[in-house]
Computed example of a mutant assay.
Amino acid sequence: MAFALPPYHPPDFTASRLAQAPVARFVAVERDGVAPAEYHATSVFPEYLQLAPGDWRLLKESRMDCVVRLGAAEDLEVVEFRRLCRGDRVALGRREDGGDGILVHTSGFRAAARRAEKFAFRTLTTRETSFSYDYDELYALLGHERHQGFVLWVLGPALAFDRDARAAFVRLVRAGFVHGVLAGNALPTHDLEAALHGTALGQEIYRKRPVAEGHYKHLDTLNSLRALGSVEAAVARGLVCEGIVHALVQNHIPYVFAGSIRDDGPLPGVIADACAAQDAMRALARRATTVICLATQLHTIATGNLTPSYQVLADGRVRPVYFYSVDMSEFAAQKLINRGSLTTRAILTNAQDFVVTLERGLTTS
């Protein structure tokens, strides 16, 4: 299947509704971290603000649930509320049709309209949905993104619990299909446990047999890594010789491991400060052109909130950001859509099977 980026269709600013639209209003912040009343909150879609009659500016590096700050050079910056300082000028307006000088453009990558039946079966994505075409689309998409995009993976620990899935993901890293990784403490911990002990939470990653003192294995792993100070040191000294983390370090793939209140250890390098972790995750999300989330509901939702549905390229072209959520649970996939990430594509399957199938298709296609 051949892949081509869909064309972007900007709004028609000569249409009477937009030609007569007012200039966007900005009001100064009076208190650090507090937006003025009637602030405009951003979405995942392309948004334009009119700074002068006929001067509509597209927001760059946007994200959901933030505000728009006007810089001294009349540049527009999408920032979190916590970054606001007294005196910052913030865009106002709740009307998104141009009525407040703000336009949320939801049809920039419009597809051909399909004829809808008044009554039809299987209109929602479920475990019974056919996903063969989705895989073929992914093979074509990742073939393009490998050299012309930035593929960001969001990984849950299930990936580290299976021998074949770990090996398949390592091959994806080495083949250039992985440009960044986001995860929690569990994924690297259990991947490193597998590298050191052949287990994940005390169970063999191939035969699934529990081992003696298995409940100590991930704690021993954490303790060993904490003694060395970093996963990079463990790789450099030859303590860790295989696995996902090893492949990331060896191939210089940027990663962010964001901690939570339930973490053991945590592993060295895991960011325990929630705001610092969000900043680090957003730095990679800003670069993403395709995001693939595997069996991690909370990190998937977090990444969905950080990632817009579009990216403005260096040459000014606007392209879509593709976002996939892979999970066995229909609830988990729908939850992200219900949180506002309306462009998410769901593939309902075991994350381990998904990675093995994807890698096999990419290397044989």
Rank of each mutant, 00 (worst) to 15 (best):
T363P: 02
R146G: 07
N305E: 09
V44G: 03
R360A: 12
A186P: 01
E145R: 04
G229V: 07
H252A: 13
A24T: 15
R287L: 14
G265Q: 04
V27Y: 01
V90A: 01
G304D: 02
L294G: 05
E38N: 15
T199F: 07
F45K: 09
N251P: 03
A274L: 13
L103H: 06
V235L: 09
E204S: 12
R82M: 10
W56P: 04
Y206L: 15
R127S: 14
A175I: 00
D263Y: 04
A194R: 01
I261H: 14
V356G: 06
E137Y: 11
G265T: 03
F331Q: 15
V173R: 05
G33M: 04
L239D: 14
L70A: 12
R25P: 06
R127N: 12
L5K: 05
F26W: 03
R360T: 14
F13N: 05
R287S: 09
T300G: 02
L58M: 02
G238F: 08
A285M: 00
A175K: 10
L76N: 08
E61L: 14
P308N: 04
W153M: 05
P11L: 00
Y8L: 00
K118S: 07
A288S: 08
A91E: 03
F150P: 06
H179E: 03
I292L: 15
G214P: 03
G101H: 07
N338G: 15
T126L: 05
W56I: 06
A72T: 14
Y48L: 11
V170I: 03
V151R: 10
D264L: 14
Y133S: 14
I292P: 06
R209V: 08
A140N: 03
D65L: 13
L103E: 08
A19H: 10
L92D: 07
L342M: 12
R207P: 00
N350K: 04
T129E: 01
V256G: 09
R317F: 01
A165P: 10
S309E: 07
P266G: 12
I301L: 14
A168P: 08
E80K: 14
A302F: 02
V240L: 03
S309D: 12
A186Q: 07
M328W: 04
D353I: 11
G184M: 01
H215V: 11
A21P: 03
A112N: 08
P268I: 02
W56Q: 09
A288K: 04
A91D: 03
D263A: 14
A195Q: 06
R163C: 10
G176C: 00
D315C: 09
T300H: 09
